[in-house]
Amino acid sequence: MAPMLEIKNLHATVDGKEVLKGINLAINPGEVHAVMGPNGSGKSTLSYVLAGRNGYDVTQGSIIFNGADLTAMEPEIRAREGIFLAFQYPVEIPGVAGTTFLKTAYNAIRKHRGEKELDAMQFLKLVRAKQADLNMTDDMVRRPVNVGFSGGEKKRYEMLQMAMLEPALAILDETDSGLDIDALKTVADGINALRSPDRAMLMITHYQRLLDYVVPDFVHVLAGGKIVRSGDKSLALDLEKEGYAVLGTEAA
């Protein structure tokens, strides 16, 4: 069986500058992969390229997602096909009510999957059930998207969106950054709750600490726009001990 996501020799530029220089990665349903690496190694670029952000251009190689060419799809189509990017810096959108935002997104995805759209009451009921697990209140869910949220609240809101949209592949970009230990545990519980045999996850992180709570099946080290080492969770522990400096020679 072909993997859910297959990245082959991926080269990508940001504003004309090559940042990814030949990535190879295959992810199967049910697997949790962690991508670690020093600042500037291309971790966030990889997440944006997968989500289809403007200005992140694939110049070589391929990304096949569930048998289809991902690079040919608009960002919203990727989302409807099951890609979810949890943002490192979730965007504040004044004037757009959180419930409007989430309901529009939810129904767009349902419609794409050929499922019935939910009315306002059904939708609210569903959100209420999910928000409780993430310690979120009605007010937080209703207010303008991310406006007035602390760093931790923004990350919990990302997890709520992920729980609602039920993606096939969740890309978590530095989801642990800016979180205190309690918030980290809440967010990690949210991620673990969504682990399932049908769903894959790609966790992008600079530090090992999230991986104490969400244990990955595979760990990859990204340096200089390439995956320079892959292994199991013990690789993350080695890196924690030795630091990224040991990769210096390999990360040219």
Partner: peptide, 29 residues
């Protein structure tokens, strides 16, 4: 705002609808 547009699109909302939401939010003030 490109960031706002991309955030909405990354949640499955098509570009036209995303623009409509953002313009409507802008006018709401």
């Amino acid at each position: 705002d490109e960031n706002e547009l991309f955030y909405l699109q990354a949640r499955g909302i098509d570009a036209a609808e995303a623009r409509r939401l953002l313009v409507s939010a802008f006018v709401k003030a």
